[in-house]
């Protein structure tokens, strides 16, 4: 990607774009179905926390609660001390389904949040190209989503979230819908961007490798209803790149998480519900 690592954005990486999030014994129920319960988590400033668990464990639901898209049934979520009830400024989400507006161009999609936030045309014209460049979509400003590959669509979704200059970035299995090679490229791209613009990132994934590669800490969800089974400090050297995948600690952690989740994954596979 042809992005100058020292590029100066509309806001530089030094401004306080990170937040502290507290999750106090929250639970989520749909009628009789308890999705998760008694979850306590703290997220620090400029920290990447990955949440991993078998499919159906409610990790995506948890993320939607943190974004304020879904109400919690028990407990409370606070961001910078403020109770989270509805989507708030400074928190942006990247969706597994990309969620691009098919009738908007890349430029309009990336500028979507800014426009809603009341940014002026001039401001949008200044910021949007910067973020399009940041995610490596130069030259595709006026393309429509259907003209882009899955990977490029998610780059656009990422740029749309980053353009809000959030202090919290929520990633909902962002690379689950792209092919394996693209996925690897996007993982390192995201880490590179995070290095330039560090913020609190909560990254939900069902891929154990991805969780270990991306996270400063890995939260393992387990059980039905699920709750936090383990929180692992990853402690892999920075910057994380392809060589990280060959690091002994990486394999060790991957095997550890795999061992933890194996029973659950097997159970989920044979769960006909």
């Amino acid at each position: 990607m042809s992005v100058d690592l020292n590029a100066d954005g509309p806001a530089d990486g030094q401004s306080d774009r990170s937040a502290r999030i507290e999750i106090n014994s929250i639970g989520k129920r749909y009628g009789d179905l308890q999705v998760f319960q008694d979850i306590n988590l703290d997220f620090n400033e400029r920290e990447i926390v990955t949440i991993v668990g078998p499919s159906g464990c409610g990790k995506t639901t948890l993320l939607r609660c943190i974004d304020g898209l879904l109400p919690v049934s028990e407990g409370e979520i606070r961001i910078e001390g403020e109770l989270m009830t509805t989507p708030r400024e400074g928190v942006a989400m990247v969706f597994q389904h990309f969620g691009l507006f098919p009738w908007k161009t890349v430029f309009q999609n990336v500028g979507y949040g800014l426009k809603l936030a009341g940014a002026s045309k001039a401001e949008i014209a200044e910021k949007v190209p910067y973020f399009i460049n940041l995610v490596g979509l130069d030259g595709f400003d006026s393309s429509f989503p259907y003209q882009l590959s899955g990977g490029m669509q998610q780059r656009c979704g990422l740029a749309r979230a980053l353009a809000m200059e959030p202090s919290v970035l929520l990633m909902d299995e962002p690379f689950a819908a792209v092919d394996a090679q693209t996925r690897e490229i996007l993982q390192f791209e995201l880490l590179r961007i995070w290095d330039m613009r560090p913020m609190t990132m909560i990254f939900v994934t069902h891929s154990i490798e991805e969780a270990v590669l991306m996270g400063d800490r890995v939260v393992v969800l387990k059980g039905r209803p699920s709750s936090v089974f383990e929180i692992i400090d990853v402690n892999l050297p920075a910057p994380r790149d392809r060589s990280t995948l060959a690091h002994p600690r990486f394999s060790e952690l991957r095997e550890h998480v795999w061992g933890t989740l194996m029973d659950e994954v097997r159970a989920a596979e044979f769960d006909v519900n």
């Binding site: 974004d67 898209l69 989507p87 708030r88 400024e89 942006a92 989400m93 969706f95 389904h97 969620g99 507006f101 979507y112 949040g113 809603l116 936030a117 809000m164």
Partner: peptide
Amino acid sequence: ELLEVAKSFR
């Protein structure tokens, strides 16, 4: 999903 995106972006 699109309505969800709209909601998430307030």
